[in-house]
């Protein structure tokens, strides 16, 4: 952290105006954007979670080879997306995070997105490494376990985060799509 602050201070001295504009306010202490794990999206771009800052997030963890619960979760995400009010759409990102980074390469995620008609810009697929995935799952209080080379047991949670990365709500198990949509709408309104 020392070094980080030092770096920030140095940057501030060098390019104070520009830096200020990029980071107008410090992140809330409980923001997921405090995680500094590195991810790749379905296009192969490297990014940090804080690159998702500024939009209300709907987040779910899945793996693409799953045949049982994940297809339901994916269809729920699509149903949520279809119910977002038109005026809210550009303020929302729908994020699907892989719990199987070994299999779910960016290319595979891209293919998965295409197959499931989730190619619009509001869809973000993320994959990283095992350690970052585990850390992220723990932030979501999500349980998962690799039970065979191709299968995982995991809890089913859809979470909504504010544009600052603070957890707004979580729905677990039999997820009520309309409830998520309502929370989403309220969060978008509040952040405007």
């Amino acid at each position: 952290m020392n070094r980080f602050y030092f770096f920030l201070a140095a940057m501030f001295l060098l390019t104070s105006c520009e830096d200020k504009q990029k980071h107008p306010e410090p992140l809330p202490s409980d923001s997921i954007f405090n995680l500094s794990s590195q991810w790749k999206n379905q296009y192969g771009d490297s990014l940090y979670l804080k690159d998702l800052q500024g939009k209300t997030l709907v987040v779910v963890m899945i793996y693409t080879s799953c045949k049982t619960a994940c297809p339901i979760l994916v269809s729920k995400m699509k149903s949520i997306e279809s119910k977002i009010a038109k005026k809210d759409k550009r303020d929302v990102s729908l994020v699907l995070v892989s719990i199987d980074p070994e299999t779910d390469t960016p290319a595979r995620l891209h293919e998965f997105a295409k197959t499931n008609q989730m190619s619009d810009p509001q869809w973000v697929f993320l994959t990283s490494n095992e350690s970052s995935t585990q850390e992220f799952a723990n932030v979501l209080s999500m349980k998962y376990k690799k039970i065979s080379p191709i299968d995982f047991s995991h809890s089913n949670i859809i979470s909504v985060f504010s544009p600052d990365g603070q957890l707004v709500s979580q729905e677990e198990g039999a997820i009520d799509v309309d409830k998520v949509v309502l929370t989403l709408h309220e969060t978008v309104q509040k952040s405007k």
Binding site: M1, S36, Q38, E102, T105, S131, E135
Partner: peptide, 19 residues
């Protein structure tokens, strides 16, 4: 110690504290 990672492994502690 991971070879197939799509992203370069980064030490967890590095996230917070530099060295």
């Amino acid at each position: 110690n991971q070879e197939n990672n799509p992203v370069e492994e980064k030490s967890f502690a590095d996230h917070f504290s530099g060295t």
